[in-house]
Simulated scan of single mutants.
Amino acid sequence: MRSALAEAVAAVGGQVLFAQEMSTPERVVSQQIVSYWLKRAGIPAELVLRAELKTGVSRFRLRPDVFCVPEDLISSNAA
C-alpha cells in the first residue's frame, strides 16, 4: 500500500506536486500530510480515486483494504 503511494507521488514529481494534485477547494492537502501518509497512514479512501486518475496508480494498489473484490465473488465468477 505504501509502495503504491510512493509510486503515485513519484509519478507526479514529488510530495509538493502530489499535494497540489490531491487538493480541492474543500480540502487543501499539504506536503507535510503527504509525508505523513507515506510514513504512517496511507492515503485516505476519499482521495484514492482522485489519485488514481491523476497518477495512473490503481486504486486496488493504493488501498487494497477498501477497494477489493471479496473472495466469495472471485470464486463465484470463476465457476
Results as ranks from 00 to 15, higher is better:
1 M>V: 11
3 S>A: 12
3 S>K: 14
4 A>H: 11
5 L>T: 04
8 A>Q: 08
8 A>V: 07
9 V>S: 10
10 A>D: 08
10 A>K: 12
12 V>Q: 01
12 V>A: 01
13 G>D: 03
14 G>T: 01
15 Q>F: 00
16 V>T: 14
17 L>I: 03
19 A>R: 10
20 Q>V: 12
21 E>L: 11
21 E>G: 02
23 S>D: 04
23 S>L: 10
23 S>V: 09
24 T>S: 13
24 T>C: 07
25 P>S: 15
26 E>P: 00
27 R>H: 14
27 R>Y: 13
31 Q>S: 12
31 Q>L: 05
33 I>Q: 13
35 S>H: 09
37 W>T: 05
38 L>T: 14
39 K>S: 12
40 R>Q: 05
41 A>P: 02
42 G>C: 05
42 G>Y: 05
43 I>M: 02
44 P>C: 13
49 L>H: 09
49 L>K: 11
49 L>R: 12
51 A>G: 05
51 A>I: 08
52 E>R: 11
54 K>F: 00
55 T>D: 01
55 T>G: 06
56 G>H: 11
58 S>A: 11
59 R>C: 06
59 R>G: 03
61 R>S: 11
62 L>T: 12
62 L>E: 14
63 R>N: 03
64 P>K: 09
65 D>P: 07
66 V>I: 15
66 V>Q: 15
66 V>T: 15
68 C>N: 14
69 V>N: 00
70 P>H: 06
70 P>E: 09
70 P>D: 06
71 E>Y: 14
72 D>H: 15
73 L>H: 14
73 L>G: 04
74 I>T: 10
75 S>Q: 14
75 S>F: 13
77 N>H: 05
78 A>W: 03
78 A>I: 06
79 A>C: 07
79 A>R: 12
